[in-house]
């Protein structure tokens, strides 16, 4: 008997909680809606939103990308492809740099992998095209004129490779080149 009463109580409680759910959901009739009426209303995107990918320039206005291929290697869908080339003075740069946005999943791994802050994701998701072919972005579509989110960094000021205006020994924390023909310590 006691067992029956316990079960009955459980049933009554169950009925009550279900009715309570119904009531609470019904009360949502009087709540404001969360939907943002895009495109009638503009969307706020935080600065670190992972949208359209750009290639930035260093503070001197030179291309930051050194074509190291790490973004391509990090890309889980393999939608980045590029080819290294080198200027007369030894700077590496991408001869072409292609992102197939029809494949991109905007995971931001490329940005994580980039050692020079060249590749960055921006708060812009309005990339729609009627023709898929137009989603293939080449370097001229990707390259912007500023340094993006990392205004101060200049890879060649840190790295040991000599380029125009920065010979051997002139990078940060570098001693002048050793004269190997002296025996002085």
């Amino acid at each position: 008997m006691r067992n029956f009463l316990v079960q009955l109580w459980a049933v009554l409680v169950g009925i009550y909680t279900n009715l309570r759910s119904l009531w609470m959901i019904f009360l949502h009739s009087f709540r404001p809606r969360d939907t943002v009426q895009y495109p009638d209303e503009p969307v706020y995107l935080p600065p670190r939103y992972r949208g359209r990918i750009v290639l930035t320039r260093d503070p001197d206005g030179q291309e930051r990308c050194v074509a190291c291929n790490l973004c391509a290697a990090a890309c889980p869908v393999g939608c980045i492809s590029l080819q290294k080339a080198q200027t007369e003075d030894g700077r590496w740069y991408p001869e072409f740099f292609r992102i197939n946005f029809s494949r991109c999943i905007f995971c931001g791994f490329c940005e994580e992998a980039c050692p020079t802050s060249a590749i960055q994701l921006t708060p812009d998701f309005e990339l729609c095209e009627y023709d898929r072919q137009n989603l293939v972005y080449e370097k001229e579509h990707l390259l912007i004129s500023g340094p993006g989110k990392d205004p101060g960094y200049n890879f060649y000021k840190v790295a040991g490779l000599a380029v125009a205006g920065k010979p051997k020994g002139a990078a940060r924390n570098e001693a002048p080149p050793v004269d190997v023909k002296t025996l002085l310590p």
């Binding site: 809606r33 969360d34 939907t35």
Partner: peptide, 8 residues
Amino acid sequence: LGLWQDRY
């Protein structure tokens, strides 16, 4: 359903 789920 939209109304009760706070959408349109």
